[in-house]
Design a protein around this nucleic acid. Structure first.
Length: 555
RNA sequence: UGCCUGAUAGUAUAACGGUAGUACGACAGACUCUGACUCUGUUUGUCUUGGUUCGAAUCCAGGUCAGGCAACCA
């Protein structure tokens, strides 16, 4: 383990700070979600970054809810966010809420007013927008900019006391209306909202804006390194300006680029549209890039953490290939998931030389990658189900499966040879007939034969049935955000295929929700949260790599 | 057309003035009682033009391209 992993740019910053004795080497980060939606894998990047970086440098991480907008926030989201972070494997030092600082933030505002650095503005939203000018032309002061300190103090108190209606007045910082940075053109720092807050109740009718809450909260908590995404870069001068004018603890903001993944969307707004428009079954639909969706899909916390580590941290825009995420979950599940057999698209197979009333119990390895996983017994009989695609009437030369005259190994059982088949009036094969080699039994094969292919099966009389849900990418274009028009028009209509009656090994009816398995040759699956022994439900987490599918595609 | 970011294989990410490396993907092969896994090999890259330097992905200047910013959202 002498291999040195290079540091990402934020780790470099932290190491430099520690080396220079900044904050006495103390490292305290925070993860600051607004409780107005569910966490997605983009948040996971931020969570991993904040928690792992702090831990690496003997620091800690707070969970702070940025709950400054009561009309959009809800306790439901608070709970889901906490669950998701813990599920990912992280524990915050303190659970904090910006709303707990409202009194102090209010005092900060008063302080600003007293320094003549903030004023109450009676202008309408439109008037303020106009007065801010444009990026190329400076803003102009509204008539209220020159109010006296005393008048501002009085008005602000009356705002707090509920004497005005929503939108009637705002408190603005007095910064620089001519700044090339639009965020410095007297930003609004308090607005009136007569709304019930999920945590503060009805105590307040004025609420601070993000720019006058986030940095202040960082400072109150003495956060040393405040990491956020790139779109907050233009806010940083304001972040620093407030710290300077207020003379409070100098937290520092650093920005990194947010995660984008191919074949999905990542903005909360768009995910909400998918949920509300019923394009998916909910926030935890296994096709969603939400943490809860990935969890239900069968992703593990470790695979998501590994993924976040491999994508790195930088400042350039990126679009990560979802195949990397898939690689991370396959890599883990290959080592940990038991192998079982399930036939998704069954066709009957009759072994004509196998005794009609004989049933054998065959021993099967659970996971050859893990000797500890043990073995299980499987019933075998004359009539089986195999995968329809594993038989071809006129197979091409590279087809290593069953066909007339073609021999193949039944996994954990015998070598069989295809003989004949029945078809119905539509030309669809209904039954395949084959013969088996009794001396080719797995574990004791002395047939002297080797076959190129091995296929999976279940005994028809013993198999249980299950609902299997096959998931594919939610969108059929790599970057739905980058396409013309409504992103929803690029939704993949085949992103969910439900197989109501697949055949599974009898023992699988007892699989517990959340359990992860490999269906041999079909992919990794996990037991759905709605699954019961009476009606087992499996979600496909990810397919196996399929060299044959590629071969077929080529021709 | 103001300000702010950024630009290294298909996608990401290293190299911090000294041999452009790694992962995923793709392609080819070996192995295989999973056409899986594993293993081997191949392919493809420093946005551009100048400058500094013995030497530039790296430093400087100009350009190009991409993204962000003018919510009483965060």
């Amino acid at each position: 383990m002498s291999e040195e992993k290079s540091l990402n740019f934020l780790e470099q910053i932290v190491e430099e700070d520690i080396a220079n004795g900044v904050n006495d080497g103390r490292v305290l980060t925070r993860f600051p979600p607004e409780p107005n939606g569910y966490l997605h894998i983009g948040h996971a990047k931020s969570i991993c970054l904040n928690f792992e970086l702090a831990k690496k440098y003997n620091g800690q991480t707070n969970l702070r809810f940025d709950d400054t907008n009561p009309v959009k926030e809800d306790i439901e989201y608070v709970d889901s966010i906490k669950q998701d972070i813990q599920w990912l494997g992280f524990q915050w030092a303190q659970e904090l809420h910006t709303s707990d600082y409202f009194e102090q933030i209010y005092e900060f505002a008063v302080q600003l007013i007293k320094k003549d650095l903030a004023y109450v503005d009676d202008s309408s939203a439109d008037e303020i927008a106009v007065s801010k000018g444009t990026p190329t032309t400076p803003g102009t002061p509204t008539p209220y900019r020159s109010r006296s300190i005393d008048e501002n103090l009085d008005l602000f108190l009356r705002m707090r006391n509920g004497e005005f209606k929503d939108g009637e007045k705002v408190l603005r910082a007095k910064v620089d209306l001519a700044s090339p940075n639009m965020h410095m053109r007297d930003p609004i720092i308090y607005r009136i909202k007569h709304a019930h807050h999920h945590r503060a109740g009805d105590k307040w009718c004025i609420y601070p804006m993000y720019d006058f809450a986030h940095g202040q909260s960082d400072s109150i908590e003495k956060i040393t390194h405040s990491f956020c995404t790139l779109e907050f870069i233009p806010h940083r001068p304001l972040y620093n300006w407030f710290i300077e004018q207020l003379g409070i603890f100098p937290s520092h903001q650093y920005e990194f680029s947010r995660l984008n993944l191919t074949y999905t969307v990542m903005s909360k707004r768009k995910l909400l549209q998918l949920v509300q428009g019923k394009f998916v079954s909910g926030w935890d639909d296994p096709r969603m890039p939400t943490i809860s969706g990935l969890r239900r899909r069968g992703y593990t916390p470790a695979s998501i953490r590994t993924f976040c580590e491999r994508i790195g941290v930088q400042k350039r825009d990126n679009l990560i290939d979802v195949s990397l995420l898939e690689f991370c979950i396959r890599e883990e599940l290959n080592k940990t998931a038991n192998r079982v057999m399930a036939v998704l698209d069954p066709v009957k197979l009759v072994i004509t030389n196998y005794p009609a009333d004989q049933v054998e119990e065959l021993s099967a390895e659970n996971n050859q990658e893990d000797p500890e996983a043990g073995r299980r017994m499987l019933p075998f009989s004359r009539t089986l189900y195999i995968e329809r695609e594993d038989f071809m009437e006129n197979p091409p030369k590279k087809f290593f499966r069953l066909g007339p005259g073609l021999a193949v190994r039944l996994k954990n059982a015998y070598i069989i040879k295809g003989e004949s088949f029945d078809k119905d009036e539509n030309g669809e094969i209904t039954t395949i007939y084959c013969t088996y080699l009794p001396e080719s039994k797995s574990g004791g094969d002395n047939s002297g034969l080797t076959v190129k292919g091995t296929i999976h099966w279940v005994s028809a009389a013993h198999a249980a049935t299950a609902e299997i849900r096959l998931y594919d990418r939610l969108f059929n274009v790599e970057n739905p955000d980058g396409e013309e028009g409504d992103f929803k028009s690029y939704i993949n209509p085949d992103s969910l295929q439900i197989i109501p009656n697949a055949f599974i090994e009898p023992g699988l009816v007892n699989a517990k929700p959340g359990e992860r398995l490999q269906f041999l040759r079909k992919g990794y699956f996990s037991v759905d949260t709605d699954s019961t022994p009476e009606k087992p439900i499996f979600n496909r987490t990810v397919t196996l790599k399929d060299a044959w599918a590629k071969e077929v595609k080529k021709n």
